[in-house]
Design a protein around this nucleic acid. Structure first.
Length: 180
DNA sequence: TAGACGATGACCT
DNA sequence: GGTCATCGTCTAG
């Protein structure tokens, strides 16, 4: 658990491990810190629901790179969503960051989100809260201005279930939600 | 090159 | 609970 959770062969184990870690954004000079509490696992060419299932394309190339890479894509033409690459190069194992509890920089997040509730309880909302856009595609999460640091909390329980918003491979219970 | 559709979120009823 | 905005990406032809 001390090792970086994004350097693992097993994407499901990596996804569960990332729960409770701190995500620290200093994008645009504004510091925002969250505790990751919702993730999904995507297993590359083995997983029909993964963007990498059909192989490498210009969009998903980051997923085929080194562990720790941030894969940022646009969802529904509107929102930004982010994944952390966790497997060895070429395998495209990635963890979708779906939600976090904001513990620092709440004022900044309220301005960015234009509201004071539901700040980061969805992948598009989380990216907006942290100031992440497509410009961050390929960024290494071990480095500023966006770092996934170390465990802030250890989950008291982790609930699993089917992944959200996908139409394929819906049988895999690869969504994980932590309570602390 | 055109057409379909999506790892979503906001708003309205 | 249901609808719709909005556009990048991929696939088929």
């Amino acid at each position: 658990m001390n090792a970086a959770p994004w350097r693992r062969d097993d994407v499901v184990a990596a996804a569960r491990d990332i729960l409770g870690w701190r995500i620290v954004s200093e994008i645009a000079g504004k510091r925002v810190v969250g505790i990751i509490d919702e993730v999904e696992a995507y297993a590359g060419e083995l997983d029909e629901a993964s963007h990498a299932y059909r192989g490498q394309t210009p969009r998903n190339r980051v997923m085929f790179g080194a562990a720790g890479g941030l894969y940022v894509y646009r969802s529904y033409g509107i929102h930004w969503c982010m994944n952390v690459v966790v497997g060895p190069p070429g395998l495209a194992r990635a963890v979708l960051l779906r939600g976090a509890r904001i513990v620092e920089g709440t004022d900044t997040v309220i301005v960015r989100r234009g509201r004071s509730d539901h700040l980061a309880d969805g992948p598009g909302k989380l990216a907006a809260a942290l100031g992440v856009t497509g410009e961050m595609d390929g960024h290494d999460v071990a480095e500023p201005p966006l770092r996934i640091d170390r465990p802030e909390k250890v989950p008291t329980s982790i609930e699993d279930g089917p992944r959200i918003g996908i139409s394929k491979a819906t049988d895999k219970p690869w969504r994980f939600v932590a309570t602390f």
